[in-house]
């Protein structure tokens, strides 16, 4: 699972829909790999607009990365070469950094979702479904 996805995935339990604690999930015992991906500056710039920066900082910190700027860079035009270093950094972080194993914990219901072999398991036990 790409790091990008952590900025969007939330607890699947219906009762957690309205809770601010069901996103982002808390990441524990995580194994990461870097996997090379084609660089698409336009896509990164698009996604940057909809990123929840506070959530990204929180998840990055869970994973041991505290080097991100504290505020989201805004109005990043992907056609300008001056923006390329920033977009490449984000590309490497969001698309090339992948979680292969680990746990995601909901801050509201405390349900633990496991990531195994890069696949997060979002199947719910009957009492939560």
């Amino acid at each position: 699972m790409k790091l990008l996805t952590t900025n969007f995935v939330k607890c699947a339990v219906k009762a957690c829909d309205s809770s601010a604690d069901s996103f982002p999930l808390k990441y524990e015992d995580v194994q990461l790999v870097q996997e090379e991906q084609d660089f698409n500056p336009e896509f990164i710039a698009n996604m940057l607009e909809r990123l929840d920066w506070a959530a990204l900082l929180k998840v990055a910190a869970d994973l041991g990365n505290t080097s991100l700027p504290s505020h989201k860079p805004d109005d990043v035009d992907p056609t300008l070469t001056e923006n390329e270093p920033l977009l490449r950094d984000l590309h490497s972080l969001l698309l090339e950094t992948q979680i292969t194993e680990g746990k995601m914990v909901c801050g509201n219901c405390q349900h633990v979702y496991h990531i195994k072999n890069s696949i997060p398991n979002f199947l719910l036990p009957p009492h939560l479904a």
């Binding site: 969007f8 699947a12 997060p120 979002f122 719910l124």
Partner: peptide
């Protein structure tokens, strides 16, 4: 698992769509 073997680009989630789509608003 077959998708993983084929090295598809997208992220794959094991999920029952009848229990909901676990992504935040406007994803």
């Amino acid at each position: 698992a077959t998708g993983l073997d084929r090295e598809v680009e997208g992220d794959l989630f094991l999920s029952d769509i009848g229990n909901g789509i676990p992504f935040r608003a406007g994803t």
